[in-house]
Amino acid sequence: MYKVRVGFLAFIILCLGGCQSRGDATLYQQLGEEAGVEKLVDVIIQKIGNNKQILPYFKDSNISHFRKGFIQHLCSVADGPCQYTGDSMVDIHTGMHINERDFNYVVELLIDAMTEVGLSTPVQNRVLQRLAPMRSDILLR
């Protein structure tokens, strides 16, 4: 009986934690606002440029256009003072046939980049949480 209690208590504590608030700062502020988002996107672009697996997806891309769109998109997704005006995620990724593996590779490049610019694990997870629902617009289009 003792073990039953410990097991369920641990489970309840974990669940309660999930319901608590995340503080007042917007994710945009936690990312370091404009300078932070720009720095993050630059590191991601650098990592994509060095990745043989992912770089081919960008062979027809205008990098400065991609950079501008990604900064605006991240700013908007993170509740920053921006409105994303670029093409939809579906339109951008249609014809790219991105599979599960390469999608996850890019997620890991993003995590690497966020680690490199010094974002904490909770801030990284908030970014991933905001971006994760877009997967179905990106995968296998």
Binding site: L14, G17, Q20, R22, P122, V123, N125, R126
Partner: peptide, 13 residues
């Protein structure tokens, strides 16, 4: 796996 669900940390059940 719930991204960021526990005070910003990922929770798996």
């Amino acid at each position: 796996l719930h991204l960021g669900a526990l005070q910003g940390y990922n929770l798996l059940w």
